[in-house]
Amino acid sequence: MGHYGEERVVSFEFTVNGERVVVEATGTRRLLDVLREDLNLTGTKEGCGEGECGACSVLIDGALVDACLVPVSQVTGASVQTVEGEAQDGRLSILQQAFLETGGAQCGICTPGMLIAGRAFLSSGTEPTDHNIREAIAGNLCRCTGYTKIIDAIALAAQRSAHQ
């Protein structure tokens, strides 16, 4: 790194799952590392480090992004949502419960990212057809399920949410 010059460590302020955080980091530190190592939110996973697998999916101001591709300097003042914010008051969300019941989680390593992608989909209000759900999770790779039960889970959650 020497000949590029040393990066300065500075403060970045944003919210994570509704809580205000201040982290001291270099501006290019990946949001993924800030979440996992600085804030001890290890629910967000690293699968490839290059934006292919979606295991590190988070919402930034509601937008679905790969945290491995986002430098922390870009989230100043933003609202970041991770899997740790999905359950409320110690209860699984409708989406989590649907994953549990349909078998949408197997090894579980893609699950946090799938939940976040599913959350973004549910928030979008898009009609929960098979194709629309497939589109919504196309950036999230799963090697265990063949996706069928993940799609079932999101469809079930959409159905239950609509009845609330």
């Binding site: 996992r36 001890n40 939110l41 290890t42 629910g43 967000t44 996973k45 690293e46 991770t82 899997v83 740790e84 999905e86 359950a87 699984l92 989590q96 994953f99 549990l100 019941e101 078998g103 989680a105 579980g108 390593i109 699950t111 946090p112 939940l115």
Partner: peptide, 21 residues
């Protein structure tokens, strides 16, 4: 029955090797 370790996996609490400190 529901997956035994399912809730931990769904909330991000499950500890994979790289999550261990």
């Amino acid at each position: 029955p529901l997956r035994r370790e399912g809730p931990a996996k769904l909330t991000g609490e499950a500890k994979y090797a790289d999550d261990l400190v």
